[in-house]
């Protein structure tokens, strides 16, 4: 089952944690949440993908759309706790050129907050 497990806000950063296959459906769910926060003025996001160990290029393409939307509002996106194959996929596609990655949420919060 793919879903958003948790959405929390800390020090101006929205942390979205997911579970399961990062496919079109989950990508669109994440995008919807991001758009709602951007509309309210929050533009910094951290995706914790520790419980998503598989992705497809459609889900990743929707994240590219999120990156594009955030660039328009001078926002930013980072990832933490990526499974090796997701990190490799994001590297191949170039997402990691535009988003920082962290090995843990703690490390990400220390760097981004």
């Amino acid at each position: 089952m793919s879903k958003i497990l948790n959405v929390e806000e800390a020090n101006g950063l929205v942390i979205i944690s997911t579970q399961g296959y990062l496919n079109k459906d989950l990508g669109e769910e994440i995008q919807k949440v991001c758009n709602e926060f951007v509309d309210k003025g929050t533009t910094s996001f951290l995706f914790n993908l520790s419980q998503s160990n598989i992705v497809n290029s459609i889900g990743a393409s929707i994240i590219i759309e999120v990156i594009e939307s955030l660039q328009e509002v001078d926002g930013d996106l980072a990832f933490c706790e990526l499974a090796p194959i997701i990190e490799k996929t994001f590297n191949i596609m170039g997402l990691t050129k535009y988003c920082k990655t962290f090995s843990s949420q703690k490390e990400a919060l220390e760097a981004l907050s």
């Binding site: 290029s57 393409s61 590219i64 759309e65 594009e68 170039g94």
Partner: peptide
């Protein structure tokens, strides 16, 4: 061959990564 630099902030569709991957 897709390139994220060409896809961001353009009208180019964001998909089309399968064969490259």
């Amino acid at each position: 061959i897709p390139d994220i630099d060409n896809k961001l902030n353009t009208t180019e569709r964001k998909r089309g990564w399968g064969i490259m991957l």
